[in-house]
Amino acid sequence: MASAVIVQGEGLGAWVAAQHTGFERLVPAQQWVLTALGIQPAATAEEPQMPARPRRWQAGRRALGLAAARQFHTCEGRLTVPCKHVETVGGVEVRLGNWPGNARAALTASAPGSAQN
């Protein structure tokens, strides 16, 4: 459930949950203030709940980025893409921006014989 109260751009409920689960990492003065506010440490080491969202598999993202790059190249005749450019492919908006350079770097890093640290 989304937080109904927003303070300085952050949901108050999400902030309280983060303080609750990360209580042990706070300094004693912060713990004291939170305890005075009625926020107690989590009973067990809970993993923070991430909001459910659909995940696109790596191969699907790569294929979508490649389709967007091809479409951009067909329209513009070049593959030098502005950083904030968004290309629409099949009704899906793809933030193309730095994708060509990132894809090249990923392919170079994963190539056999490349130096990996």
Rank of each mutant, 00 (worst) to 15 (best):
A2T: 03
S3L: 01
A4Q: 10
V7Y: 00
V7C: 02
V7M: 02
Q8M: 14
Q8R: 04
G11I: 00
L12H: 07
L12V: 13
W15C: 00
A17S: 06
A18T: 04
Q19V: 02
Q19P: 04
T21I: 12
T21R: 14
T21K: 09
G22L: 01
G22Y: 03
F23M: 09
E24W: 15
R25P: 06
L26Y: 06
P28G: 11
A29L: 08
Q30K: 08
Q30Y: 06
Q30G: 09
Q30V: 11
Q31V: 01
Q31A: 05
Q31D: 04
W32I: 11
G38R: 00
P41E: 01
A42M: 06
A45G: 15
E46L: 15
E46Y: 12
E46C: 04
E47F: 07
Q49H: 08
Q49T: 15
P51T: 05
P54G: 11
R55L: 15
R56T: 14
W57S: 14
A59H: 13
A59D: 13
A59N: 15
A59F: 08
G60P: 05
R61I: 11
R62K: 10
R62T: 09
G65D: 02
L66W: 02
A68S: 07
A68G: 07
R70S: 10
Q71M: 03
H73C: 10
C75N: 12
E76W: 05
R78Q: 05
V81I: 07
E87N: 02
T88C: 13
E93D: 11
V94S: 00
V94F: 00
R95K: 07
L96D: 05
P100M: 05
G101I: 10
N102R: 11
A103C: 08
A103Y: 15
A103M: 09
R104T: 11
A105T: 06
A105D: 05
A106M: 15
L107E: 12
L107Q: 15
L107D: 14
T108V: 11
A111W: 09
P112K: 02
G113L: 02
G113H: 06
A115M: 12
Q116S: 07
N117Q: 14
